[in-house]
Nucleic acid binder design. Structure first.
Lengths: 107, 107
DNA sequence: CGGTTAATCAACCCATAAGTTGAATATGCT
DNA sequence: AGCATATTCAACTTATGGGTTGATTAACCG
C-alpha cells in the first residue's frame, strides 16, 4: 500500500486519532495511552502498530516501557494533498462573489 | 461511524483519490470515471458509493447517466484536523529557532 | 530467586472492504 | 416494439480490520 493510503487509513479510526491527540501533549507509554479507552491493552497495542507502520509515531525502549512519540511528518503529505482541493470548498465564496458582482452590474 | 473517520476511510484508497482528482476537472459519468482503471465498472460504482456516503461527491440524474460531481466540503474538516498538528511537522524550525536564541544568549 | 509490571505474540471471531460475475432496471434510438 | 447503452443490484469469494482471551517475553523490585 502506498504511504498516503496507509496514513489516511491509520487516521480513519477515532481511537487512533485520540491517541495522536494524546501524544501531541507528550510522550506516553502503552498503558498510559490505553487507559482512557474501553478496549483491551492488546487492542491498543495493535492500534499503535498501525500508527507506527504509517510513520505517525515512533517508539523508544526504556526498561520494560515502550514510550511512544508523535511523528507528524506524514501529516505534511496529508496537508499537501488536501490543499489541492482547497479552492473547491472555498468556491462557495467565489460563487457568492461572482453573484454579487453580477447583481451589482445589473442594478 | 463518525464523519471524519468516514472521510479518511474514503480517502484511504488510491482509486478513490484518483476519481476525486478526475472530478476536480469537472463532472463525469460512471463509465468515464471507470475508463482509466483496470477494474470492473461495478467495482468503480462501489467506490462511488463510498465517496457519496462520505459526502465527497454528489450525483445527478440525466437520462441513463448519473453524472458525478466533486463536493470538497468534507475536505475542509480534514484540513482543519490536520492543521492542529502543523506545529509538529514544522517543529524542526522552532527547534532551530530555540537553538539559535540559546547560543546567542550564551555568547 | 520469585513475584509483579509492561508489553507483545498468537489464535481465534465477526464484520466489512474490494473485487468478481451474472442478472436486472431504465432510458434512448430506430 | 425491440435493441443498445448506462448503471445498479445481488450473490459470492477472499482478504483485512478491530476486537477478544490466553500465553509469553522481558525488566524491575524485594
Amino acid at each position: 500500500m502506498d504511504r498516503l493510503s496507509e496514513v489516511f487509513s491509520a487516521l480513519a479510526d477515532p481511537t487512533r486519532r485520540a491517541i495522536l491527540a494524546r501524544l501531541a501533549e507528550g510522550e506516553a507509554t502503552v498503558n498510559e495511552l490505553a487507559e482512557p479507552f474501553p478496549i483491551s491493552l492488546q487492542a491498543v497495542s495493535k492500534h499503535l502498530k498501525v500508527l507506527e507502520r504509517a510513520g505517525l509515531i515512533t517508539r523508544g525502549i526504556h526498561a520494560q516501557w515502550r514510550p511512544c512519540r508523535l511523528d507528524a511528518a506524514p501529516l505534511r503529505g496529508v496537508a499537501e494533498w488536501v490543499t489541492e482541493y482547497r479552492r473547491f470548498w472555498e468556491e462557495r465564496y467565489d460563487e457568492l462573489g461572482t453573484y454579487l458582482t453580477k447583481i451589482q452590474k445589473e442594478n
